[in-house]
Design a protein around this nucleic acid. Sequence first.
DNA 1: GCACTATATTACCTTTTGCTTATATAGTTT
DNA 2: AAACTATATAAGCAAAAGGTAATATAGTGC
Lengths: 119, 119
Amino acid sequence: MSCKTGSRVAMRPLSEEALEMIARRFALLGEPMRLRLLHALFDGEKSVTALVEASGGTQANVSRHLQAMAEAGLLGRRKQGLQVFYSIADPTLFQLCELVCGSLEEKLARDAKAFARAG
Amino acid sequence: MSCKTGSRVAMRPLSEEALEMIARRFALLGEPMRLRLLHALFDGEKSVTALVEASGGTQANVSRHLQAMAEAGLLGRRKQGLQVFYSIADPTLFQLCELVCGSLEEKLARDAKAFARAG
DNA sequence: GCACTATATTACCTTTTGCTTATATAGTTT
DNA sequence: AAACTATATAAGCAAAAGGTAATATAGTGC
């Protein structure tokens, strides 16, 4: 079960359940609209209405995505009067996005270089 | 375009294209079978046949998944005679899996604790 | 060239998923 | 209670994605 504690994920036999949990988490990050919402939340909690405006999505769709991420523990939910405020609940989200973003940048730079060489 | 260089992804206006690239990368990690293949590759490059055995998938399916990940730059491909060897090409994959795995562990621990308190 | 092996590709089916429209719920204000 | 606002939920649809079976390609050895 344990795969943190400084040791390599590589070495551990991952159970089918663990694999599905990990996959589900990655899959949640695998849609542009949800990334847009997360990105909008990176500078602090926001109401659903604010997120609808920030993302350009419909109210129903945004609400659904927010709920899905909240259920997975990615987002926190705070109800205040009529409004519901969502916020980043899992700090690893920042690191995950940094990692992927950085990796993509490097790849793009490499590709551009290769293109220049080839041309 | 730049979102690495030590600075927060949070602050940058991400273009629609960038968002889709990031989403695509996460989505690739969002399927158990692909995670199984990656996990099998964590201890070094393997032939397609070896990966078919390790993952329990069919040859056609495994081949497709491997190609998808290779095209995205996650995997490297080396052809040697009849065999094709795939390997981890993006070292951030290790860190990504560590991060998610660790985060899930913490969440599970918290949930278990809350359950104990509730019961 | 022919048989054989390893990998890739195609066609097809099924399930999943994201989106939209319409409606319901919950909370506020008067 | 009635009108209003913010959010959630439901039903239905269209597109995407994963899986399988069958076939094609490419490399090897006889």
